[in-house]
């Protein structure tokens, strides 16, 4: 059997490279009837903020060609309820669990991590959602500025000994520069990409299909954008890169590994079938054998 384990540094090893992405697997327990979580390489929760958030009014989503738009608005129960109601279930799973952290200030991100640390429940670490508006900076997203990204990362690095992964936005001039800022700040890994800014509207009425107008595009429509960004990030940093964006199949996973990803996350495809992550993980050895690749290490970064 092909060895699918993936070493991510800081003593963290995934049993396979296939994780499920933040915001596409809820709090984790919604689909417990359908799958065995222990077959997943890892799971990233939906983004958790300090206080509960209502999120955006409907309509929050819209289907587009080979994709979908969303503006959920970080609707979540807040870290206190999360630690009480969901974290015990997540900590009991036999897969690497990452809590996705959202905030509107550096302090809020840190307080979320501190609350999870106080719960003393075992998780693998955190993924930092830097696509949040920074209230002290006029609502500009943390993730569009290398300085803010580095400052935030080093602040959070000081808050936890656990794995720290920073999730990058593609909606920037130079994603490599932001990735390097996260690396300088002490991130153990970067994950990319978050959704691509998009919009759809009714031609007859001019009404936006998603209430906020500007929203995030995901799904196979963004896969080529994601591959290009993961390629650029892999060239820019020496820490592991976790790739994502429109992965629907085992072939897509191998595409991301070949542009330099250490591991991958499945996002929108979970909405079609929450079992797709573990199905892909099961198919991976067979596909590697078919393309005569001895293992993931041998093909990583081999795009040419």
């Amino acid at each position: 059997m092909t060895d699918l384990t993936v070493t991510l540094g800081r003593g963290l090893t995934l049993k396979n490279p296939v994780m499920v992405a933040s915001g596409t697997f809820g709090y984790g327990d919604e689909v417990a009837d359908l799958l065995d979580y222990s077959e997943l390489g890892g799971l990233v929760t939906k983004s958790i903020s300090l206080e509960p958030r209502d999120g955006h009014p409907p309509p929050r989503i819209c289907e587009t060609p080979a994709g979908m738009l969303n503006a959920i608005g970080w609707a979540n129960m807040g870290v206190e309820a999360f630690c009480r109601d969901n974290l015990p279930f997540l900590a009991g799973l036999r897969t690497a669990v990452f809590v996705s952290v959202a905030g509107s200030s550096q302090a809020e991100y840190a307080h979320v991590i501190e609350a999870v640390e106080r719960s003393a429940l075992e998780i693998a670490g955190y993924e930092i959602n830097i696509s949040c508006p920074h209230v002290d900076k006029g609502g500009l997203e943390f993730g569009v500025s290398p300085e803010e990204t580095e400052k935030l990362t080093s602040r959070l690095r000081a808050a936890t000994e656990r794995y720290l992964m920073v999730k990058l936005s593609p909606n920037v001039t130079d994603i490599g520069e932001i990735a390097q800022a996260a690396e300088r700040g002490g991130a153990d890994a970067v994950s990319a990409i978050n959704t691509v800014i998009g919009m759809e509207l009714d031609p007859a009425t001019g009404i936006f299909k998603v209430q906020t107008g500007l929203c995030g595009l995901s799904g196979p429509a963004i896969r080529p954008i994601a591959l290009a960004n993961v390629y650029k990030v892999s060239q820019a940093v020496s820490i592991p890169v976790v790739g994502m964006g429109g992965i629907m199949s085992v072939e897509d996973v191998v595409r991301f590994i070949r542009v330099g990803a250490q591991a991958v996350q499945i996002g929108t495809a979970n909405y079609r079938d929450p079992r797709i992550g573990l199905q892909i993980a099961r198919e991976l050895p067979g596909y590697l054998a078919k393309i005569e690749a001895p293992g993931l290490e041998e093909i990583r970064g081999s795009a040419h």
Binding site: G23, F25, G26, G55, P57, P58, R60, P274
Partner: peptide
């Protein structure tokens, strides 16, 4: 409602509800 997943993992099919003041204080007035 327009739905993304049907099982609660995308949180796309939001429905606006009246918030009962007493529930809101208990943190349950979503």
């Amino acid at each position: 409602e327009m739905m993304g997943c049907g099982v609660g993992i995308c949180m796309g099919c939001s429905v606006e509800c009246r918030i009962d003041a007493s529930l809101a204080q208990a943190g349950e007035g979503r």
